[in-house]
Structures are given as structure tokens and as C-alpha cells.
Design a binder for these strands. Structure first.
Lengths: 335, 335
DNA sequence: TTGTAAGCGTTATCAG
DNA sequence: CTGATAACGCTTACAA
């Protein structure tokens, strides 16, 4: 069972190990030798030893994938996309979770470096990037997904958060809403900044003035989503529609709405983020902006492979993907 | 940045590489040398090269995790448990998906073997086990989770499916139901067999005769769950309660129930399987049997590490974990 | 305890 | 195109 070595193959084929190695690595070998080698390989059930190969060639055919949380639907879908591409190329992936903490993120980056991965796909957990900047010095190809940093020039795959949220909020406005609450992420986080940007753009276009009381900041968690909608709904002049800007805060909104016995699309209109069984199942189905998760993964994988093979292009190449908008009766028509 | 070798450390510390190696691997070294080595390591920023270490010692400090589907909540929670334990021990995990196909499962097992993982945690995708039996010959430690096979003697971590479903169905009966439909998995699948067993036990105990018309077999997918409940609800003497035996079929039931505009706990009582945002969020919250996913993971990881370190005990050691039952108003009280 | 030296299974260099 | 041989960085007898 794959216990033979290149040496034995060479012996059986009557050539030197160098020739066998060359054959394996796709260099040209005399037709006759080629045949002999192939026979020997089959007969001996030879398999190249990745460890030895890696030791010598400094390539391990493995990619590290570092995400904030493995339990998150968005994340797992992205991972699926990554694996599709990578497995096809016979690369293996080492998946790590930073558990939403930048210091663990930093540790795991180091762990992956020690594991000698050929490249890393990173979904940053926060807007702290000094460890990432530091890590760049290792010259290990690194591709960011979902979030990018102004000061860090790496390849990246992100969604067009501005346009996505602009379009979503525009649809809300089109249905007659003017008092639209937004449950935003942290001020410093890339996605949050952009989603807020889209919100502002949509308002501006329709000459609705931005009311800061309708803007709630959260850490993107369910519990803060709950708190945020609660605050919004406790206002004297409460919003008629709410835009929750990620999966977890959307969940928080739903919980609040159920707790209070409100009717979605009736008592309150809701636009959420990301796709899930839950959002589709509820009556009425929730309007959402959703991201092409699978595609994010495949693009990131292609990007890291590209960089691994051809070296860094030197400058940052950011791929921007479109989001999709699903509008349902969860947004009431006021006019 | 970790580019120095044991050789340089030895030189700087004024000892031989053998001594440094011994120090690294925790063998006794003269106190004075120890100090010198430690200094050198720190100064040179030395890190052992896993590849070289693995090549020589035949240990890679990595564990393969092969699951049917990375997008599944149950699976990701188990994986989280696994990682917790493994990372702590400085092991890395290579996570693979068999995409619910036994032949891919077989391929991935081989892939992991080639990657020289020290052990594999496998959540089998089907009841086909011939490739697994074949794989045992490689003498790579293998721990099964979720499902086991009668003919394969491996360590395993599973839930007590019989008792879990027995208790759940008993609670349904206690509430006055006698016409209880079950949406079962494939006849040959371990979990399905056992969950059905528990169902039968509960009926028998209360002298309710088993009516085969109330028993529907599925492949555990949402679509078949939908079909199954539809068939059940189309019966002349339809069940008053339904037990869906996994997450996906429970989802299928919910979709049907919503499509038909039925009221859970009123028009039909429902007991589902596994935990999810959805089941908790719906009104009324769905009654479920849920499995200690995190624990399954940690136990499996401990088991594989144990076997990796101490070698196979020779005989199969199956750890059986308890499930938890959550009963809500989704099950109507008929008496 | 320690140093020496022979591997582990490849790849890379360099004559030929 | 091929063979011989020196690495890669570490572990592990073996002898001291």
C-alpha cells in the first residue's frame, strides 16, 4: 500500500532516481524509459511522499483557511467553494477558526506558517490589521475575503457591499418608506462602513435626510441586533422599516419581532442580510441581500493558487462580486 | 522568521545537533546545555520544521476529518468540538467532505492517507462500508462518529439514538397521541435503524400497535421529508403527531406545514431532530431531540489522539452519548 | 549524557 | 535526456 519509494521504482525500471523524479514532475523522459517507469510505478503501487517532497521543494500543496467562526453559515458556504477548487488541484486545506478574536487570528496565522502552507485565505475577524501587516513579511501568499484594509495591499475577494445595500434600501424607499432604521456593524469594519454607505446613498438620492437616531451600531451579534431593534422600536417616531446589515443582527430582529408579537411586513418592514433556511421559511419570507458565498470561495481559491504558482504580482488585486437582492412582502407597500 | 535550523542552534549553543534534538523532544539534557540551547533557540528564532520531523519520525501531528457535508449545522458543530481538543494539543486538522457519496468518501480516505495524517475521524455518509473495511488495512487509526457498522470494529462516538427517540415518542404518547407518524431515514443506516427502534419501543410500552402506514422511509433529505409528511397528512386516518428523525426532514415538514397553512401544535404536532436557530425561532418553538454535537467532537478527538499515541487497543470501543429532549407546545395535549 | 553518522524520500545541480 | 550525488532538517541507533 504505497510503501515503495522512488528508489525502488528506479531500480525496477532500470533508470536512475533522477529520471523517475523527472518523470513524476512532468519533465520529458525518453519514451522507452517512460513506459518502464510507468510499469514499475503501477507494479509497486508507488505514491510520492508529500513530506519528503515538501521538505525538499518547499511546497506542501496545502492552503490554510482562517475564518472567524466555523459555525457560521456564510463561512461554511465560502469554505465549500474554496474546497471545490482546491481539491480539484490536489491541494489540501487546513481550516482554522480565529473564534472572532484578533489575537487568536494572529496565533493561527503563525500556526499555518509553521505548517508550511503554500498560501493562506483569510477572512479577518476585526479591523485590527497590524498582525496581518506584520505577517506579510513572511512572504506567504495571502488572500483576504469579505473584508479588506486600506493600509494593507493584498489580493482580496469581497462583495460590493455599497451597491448591494444601496439597492436594497432604494427598494424600501420605493415602497414609500422614509423612516428607515439601520442596524449597522462596528464603525471601523469594512463591510459595515460600506453597507452604511449604500444606505446613505439611497437616502440621499431620494432626498431623505439622514437621521442619526435611526442609525444603530452593533458588534454584528444577535444580542446587539435585538437591542438595536428594541431601541428603534421604542422611539417616539419609530421607523417603519428596518435594515439589518448581517445575518446575526437579522436574527436578533426576528427574535424581537416574535417576542413582541409583531407582524413582519405589517407592523414593521424588514430587510435582512445573507441567506438561510430560516429566512426562507418564515412567513412572510424575509427580504434579504445575499452574497454569492460559493463564488467568493472559488474566486479566493483561484486567486491564492494563482499567487502561489506565479508569485505575488506585487500590487493588490481586489475582486468585487455582486450581491443579490430578494424583495418579498416583508417590506410593506406604503404607497 | 523561523528560518534557522537545529544545526545552527547546535553550533551556537556549542553542542551537537543530537543534543538539541533531544532537548526539543523532551529528553534529559545537562542543565547547563539546556540553558545554552534555550538561549540559542530564542536568539535564532528557531522553530522545528514539521516536514522534516514528519519525514523522519513518521508522525505529522495532523488528523483528517472526513464528513458528509460541510454545510450542515450538525457537522460544523461537531467539527468545532474536534478542533478545540486538537488545536490544544498542537495538532492540525485536515477537513474533507465526502459530499454524501461513498465513493468520494473512499477517495478522500486515500487522500488523507497520502497526506500522512496520524489518524482520521470519519462520519460515514452511508451504510456502505467495504471501502472502510479495506482502509483498515492501512493501520491508520480511525474513529467513527455518528454512525457505526456491525461488521467493522473501530472505535466510535455515537449518540444513544434508541433512548433519545424512545423518550421523545413516549412524551408524545403521554400527551394522548396514538396515531404517530415517523419520518425515518434509510432502512440500512445506523441512526435510522436505532431511531426507529426507539419509536417502536415507546409504542410497544403503551401497547399501541405499530401501523406501518405511519412509517415513512426517506433518504434523510428535506425534499423527501416534505413528500413523507404530505403522504402522512393525506391519509384517511392521518396521524395527530409526526416525528421527523433528522434535521433535514424536520425542515421538510415545516415547509409543508407552512405551505398548507397548518398550525403546529394545533392541526399537527411535531417532534423534530437536532438544534437550529430556525427551530428555536418559530412559534411555537419546535420540540426536538438534540445531540450533544460539541461533545461528540471533543470525545472523538480525544479518542483518536489516544489511539494515535498508544496504538489501537485492538478491540472496538464505542462511546455512547446521551441526547437531550426539548418538549414544547409543538406537541398538543390531547388529554 | 553526549557526539557521530546513517538515514527518511524527495528534488536540484552538474557533468556527461 | 540521464546518472550520480549532494542537499532538505530532523530523529535515532550506536559508541563513547
Amino acid at each position: 500500500m504505497g510503501k515503495s519509494t522512488i528508489k525502488e521504482v528506479a531500480k525496477m525500471a532500470g533508470v536512475s532516481i533522477g529520471t523517475v523524479s523527472r518523470y513524476i514532475n512532468g519533465f520529458s523522459v525518453k519514451e522507452k524509459n517512460k513506459k518502464h517507469i510507468e510499469e514499475a510505478i503501477k507494479k509497486l503501487n508507488f505514491e510520492t511522499n508529500y513530506l519528503a517532497q515538501g521538505l525538499r521543494s518547499k511546497k506542501t500543496n496545502s492552503i490554510g483557511v482562517l475564518v472567524p467562526d466555523i459555525g457560521d453559515i456564510f463561512v461554511t458556504q465560502v469554505i465549500e467553494g474554496i474546497e471545490t477548487v482546491l481539491n480539484e488541484q490536489n491541494f489540501s486545506t487546513i481550516i482554522c477558526s480565529s473564534q472572532n478574536q484578533w489575537n487568536i487570528e494572529s496565533e493561527k496565522l503563525d500556526f499555518l506558517r509553521k505548517k508550511k502552507v503554500d498560501g493562506i485565505i483569510l477572512m479577518p475577524t476585526s479591523s485590527i490589521y497590524k498582525h496581518i501587516k506584520e505577517f506579510e513579511k513572511n512572504n506567504i501568499p495571502l488572500v483576504l475575503i469579505d473584508r479588506i484594509f486600506d493600509r494593507v495591499s493584498l489580493n482580496a475577494v469581497v462583495c460590493d457591499n455599497v451597491t448591494g445595500s444601496y439597492e436594497g434600501v432604494s427598494e424600501i424607499i420605493k415602497r414609500g418608506h422614509t423612516k428607515i432604521g439601520i442596524i449597522n456593524g462596528p464603525k471601523t469594519v469594512y463591510t459595515a462602513k460600506n453597507r452604511f454607505e449604500g444606505y446613505k446613498m439611497a437616502l440621499k438620492e431620494e432626498s431623505i435626510k439622514l437621521d442619526n437616531d435611526y442609525v444603530k451600531y452593533t458588534d454584528y451579534t444577535e444580542i446587539e441586533g435585538y437591542r438595536a431593534i428594541k431601541e428603534l422600536m421604542s422611539m417616539k417616531e419609530k421607523p417603519t422599516a428596518i435594515f439589518a446589515t448581517n445575518y446575526k443582527t437579522t436574527l436578533g430582529c426576528l427574535r424581537y419581532i416574535y417576542d413582541e408579537g409583531l407582524k413582519i411586513g405589517e407592523d414593521i418592514s424588514l430587510l435582512g442580510y445573507d441567506q438561510s433556511d430560516l429566512f426562507k421559511m418564515i412567513k412572510p419570507q424575509i427580504s434579504v441581500i445575499y452574497q454569492p458565498t460559493q463564488l467568493i470561495g472559488t474566486e479566493a481559491a483561484k486567486s491564492i493558487l494563482e499567487e502561489t504558482n506565479n508569485g505575488s504580482s506585487g500590487k493588490s488585486n481586489v475582486k468585487i462580486l455582486d450581491t443579490k437582492l430578494v424583495i418579498t412582502e416583508s417590506i410593506k407597500k406604503l404607497k
